[in-house]
Simulated scan of single mutants.
Amino acid sequence: MEENAAPLPFRQAVDALRAARLRPEVEIDPTKPPKRLAPYAYALEAAVVEEDEDLADGRLVLLHDPAGHDAWQGTFRLVTLLRAELEPEMAADPLLPEVCWSWLTGAMDARGLSYGEASGTVTRAGSHYFGGLADRRPATQIEIRASWTPREGLGGVPDTASYLAAWCDLLCQVAGLPPAPVHGPETGVQSLPGVVSLPQRRGPQHP
């Protein structure tokens, strides 16, 4: 896809993503978007880094179909994948999947963002190491896969910068960082409400 041939609403939505101001703990870069999901797509990958340690990572994809999509109930769709490693005792909480899903919706609610047709999965997987890897501690990873339709504003363009900021709030919360203050036009500075962040400080183990 040639970017200069894309529809104006999509170009404006992408420009807003590129110009968004994010938390300093989040390192973010554009990446190759998936093909065949929509006529137009743009993707970002991010990691929460603290003291040179990756605490969580994720990917956010913006999809656009100018003709609209019945399943989306709109012309834009946001798709995400987030991962973080947890302490085993936290991963044993039976309510963890419900809590993590509430963080996704809560991050958008905290910034006053409307959305529709939200769907996704929360998965936790444990690893135990043997043989030459037996000195490693057991590890448990949480993975959130989700998609939702952002509200379209003037000219049919969603406020993608705000949705990206909410997504980064979620990524930091999964990583175990404290909530960052939100600057609102009427309320001034306030902290993000929601469940306490996961108390973990070990990043995902990569082979």
Rank of each mutant, 00 (worst) to 15 (best):
Q12E: 11
E186F: 11
G120D: 08
L164D: 01
L104S: 04
Q141T: 14
E2T: 14
D29N: 10
E50I: 07
L22V: 08
A67T: 09
G68D: 02
L44N: 04
P207W: 03
C168H: 00
D159L: 12
G116V: 07
V157N: 01
P178M: 02
P9Q: 06
Q12C: 05
G132S: 12
I144K: 02
R11W: 03
V48P: 00
L81T: 12
A43P: 00
L17W: 08
I28G: 02
R83H: 11
G112V: 03
G184L: 08
G68P: 00
A13W: 04
D15C: 06
A91V: 05
P33F: 06
A47S: 15
C172R: 10
T160I: 02
Y115M: 02
D159I: 10
A110Y: 06
E45M: 13
Q12G: 03
G203I: 09
L82C: 12
F10R: 07
L113P: 00
G176H: 02
L62A: 06
H128L: 15
A91N: 01
H206G: 07
L8Q: 14
P199N: 04
T149M: 07
R59A: 05
A165T: 14
G74T: 02
P199D: 02
V99F: 07
V182Y: 05
V195W: 12
V195D: 08
N4K: 15
R23N: 10
L17P: 03
P88F: 04
F130G: 07
E89R: 14
P30S: 09
Y42N: 01
M108Y: 13
G156V: 05
A19Q: 13
M90E: 13
R18C: 05
E152S: 09
A134C: 05
G116A: 15
L8T: 15
F130V: 10
A84C: 13
W148R: 01
G194V: 05
P204T: 11
C100S: 10
M1K: 10
A139H: 08
T80V: 10
